[in-house]
Design a protein around this nucleic acid. Structure first.
Lengths: 182, 182
DNA sequence: CGAATTTATGCAATTTATTGCATATTTATT
DNA sequence: AATAAATATGCAATAAATTGCATAAATTCG
């Protein structure tokens, strides 16, 4: 399972609570590995039991206690070993393309709307990414090593987004010739 | 669950056996929705029980019998309804990007090798796609409606592949500046 | 001839992921 | 003052996917 390794990766720099991890997964790492908070909490327990993470309860004035997790040396070694192992190909899962196989006059306008919506979402995401890029990764060559890796992941997200946008445009143009709305 | 709808989509044109479906999923539709044969067989049973598919046992001279599935009118209606419903965002899951967050001198060469491997795979896939495109989708504007949808899905695969290739090149260039192999 | 591969289908166990709920406290809103 | 929202964690049930195995007949290769 790689969720565990994604969690440990997120803990490389900062110690975090489950709640904070869940939020972190919604932004940077979450692009490449999505997980719900229920999954994360369960995984954290397993990893702590294994000795790859250590827990520490932090009492907070005013807020509920939080349980903060940190990578142990053993966990660090396990993570390193995982990085050097083989990757599994990613699994594509996207409704929209399956739906496109069902294209017909009567659903063309609906599919066009879905594509337009996706285009909109991607625009917003790209805007965010570009902002991060300009702020933190303006000059990739001078970054410390680990940050270069993060930069490459960000770049993959950006390239992906650009591809999606241009595909959306092509798709909408073609769908416009099909659409039979009165 | 959308696997069921992906299966029904695959059965829109041809009737197919589970085995044939599993192979079909390895090529065209499989890019957007991956499934093992175990999953497919199970799902076929469920769909047949629901009345969305009908089975027919075909005795074959020389080979084991096969059970061929066809979309029923009820199944067709259900599929149409699904197409008009909302799509759920795709979930990204890719080890490689998580690994990049762990980039360090001692693993840079390994990660570069993984990226090179992925580049190679993508090249082969793109080659296949372009062949299909030239053979069957040379002039998109003149295609019958449903085929236009399939074409758009294919195009997404092609654009995606192109993006991946160019990202691999950028990544390899940056990794070369990190790699400390003697 | 025997071994491996391809065609064809399936069960069972386990791992992953999702859905829905439950709890408890503080801060901000109305 | 009551309500909602954000912080913080978790259980339980179900659904989906993976892994490993099993069967069985035909074909192909050495």
């Amino acid at each position: 399972m790689a969720l565990s390794h994604a969690i440990m990766t997120a803990l490389l720099e900062d110690t975090m609570s489950g709640y904070e991890l869940a939020k972190a997964f919604d932004v940077s790492l979450g692009l490449f590995w999505r997980a719900s908070h229920q999954q994360i909490y369960q995984e954290l327990h397993k990893l702590a039991a294994k000795g790859w993470l250590q827990q520490e309860t932090v009492p907070q004035a005013g807020k509920p206690n939080k349980i903060v997790y940190a990578l142990t040396p053993v966990g660090h070694v396990a993570l390193e070993a995982w990085v050097l192992g083989g990757s599994r190909v990613q699994e594509g899962k996207d409704d929209l393309f399956v739906k496109l196989y069902n294209l017909a006059e009567h659903n063309a306008s609906h599919l066009a709307a879905e594509i337009e919506q996706r285009r909109e979402q991607m625009m917003q995401r790209l805007y965010l990414y570009e902002k991060i890029r300009r702020r933190h990764y303006a000059d990739p060559a001078t970054l410390p090593v680990r940050r270069k890796g993060v930069y490459l992941a960000l770049l993959a997200g950006i390239r992906q987004g650009e591809h999606t946008l241009s595909w959306c445009d092509e798709a909408l143009a073609l769908l416009a010739t099909v659409d039979q709305r009165p």
